[in-house]
């Protein structure tokens, strides 16, 4: 494999950064690893979790997205480590994500139906009690994109509802789900159920 692998860091914010690679890393798929344990199905994710403060890894097509626990406007130091890990993986010739991981995944269409069913029947009737709702925006590979609205948008407890309620419900019902991406603009919430004040 040629040595000159070009990788461009595209910071999303102080905690998330997308690394665009000039060749496929995981052709035709997306794999999300929310912790070190799950990373065992991906040699690349294992390498990335060895970098301090990395909390989540999403490998899709020709990009690798990283979340870290500590916000920092400067991505330079971590970008060097991430770049080295991606290059080492591509140069090894070993697939970034194992076949075993791929085989387990349902299709996007099937995933969409199953997620929508849970949102409609389990989650939304419950959060409606606080004037809130959760909608499914998109499914890409096994990653789902959701948005919280109404009383959930900007609510001080939205993160608790998301992590301890919505994610738990979805992952219990559909363990194959990859990343659950909350695209909510909480800063624009005009009517949050709980407004933080202390």
């Amino acid at each position: 494999m040629e040595q000159n692998i070009k990788i461009t860091a595209e910071p999303v914010d102080a905690q998330r950064c997308r690394f665009k690679v000039d060749r496929p890393v995981y052709a035709g798929g997306a794999a999300f690893f929310g912790n070190r344990e799950r990373a065992k199905e991906s040699p690349l994710a294992e390498k990335l979790f060895a970098i301090d403060t990395v909390t989540e890894v999403l490998i899709s097509e020709n990009a690798v997205s990283i979340s870290r626990s500590i916000p920092d406007a400067d991505w330079l130091a971590m970008a060097k480590q991430v770049g080295a890990a991606i290059r080492a993986q591509l140069q090894s010739g070993i697939p970034a994500v194992s076949e075993k991981h791929k085989e387990k995944l349902p299709s996007s269409a099937e995933l969409r139906l199953r997620v929508k069913d849970i949102l409609d029947n389990d989650i939304n009737p419950a959060v409606a009690g606080h004037g809130g709702f959760v909608e499914l925006l998109d499914v890409r590979a096994n990653n789902i994109y959701i948005r919280m609205g109404g009383g959930c948008q900007g609510c001080g407890m939205a993160n608790v509802t998301l992590k301890q309620g919505i994610e738990r419900t979805l992952r219990d019902a559909i363990p194959e789900i990859g990343e659950i991406l909350d695209t909510t603009d909480h800063a624009s919430g005009h009517n949050p159920y709980y407004s933080p004040s202390k």
Binding site: D122, I123, A126, V127, A128, G129, H130, G132, M157, V160, T161, Q164, G165, I166, R168, T169, D172, Y194
Partner: peptide, 9 residues
């Protein structure tokens, strides 16, 4: 105050 999804978890 109770969470709306308390029964789920």
């Amino acid at each position: 105050e109770p969470s709306t999804l308390m029964s789920a978890n």
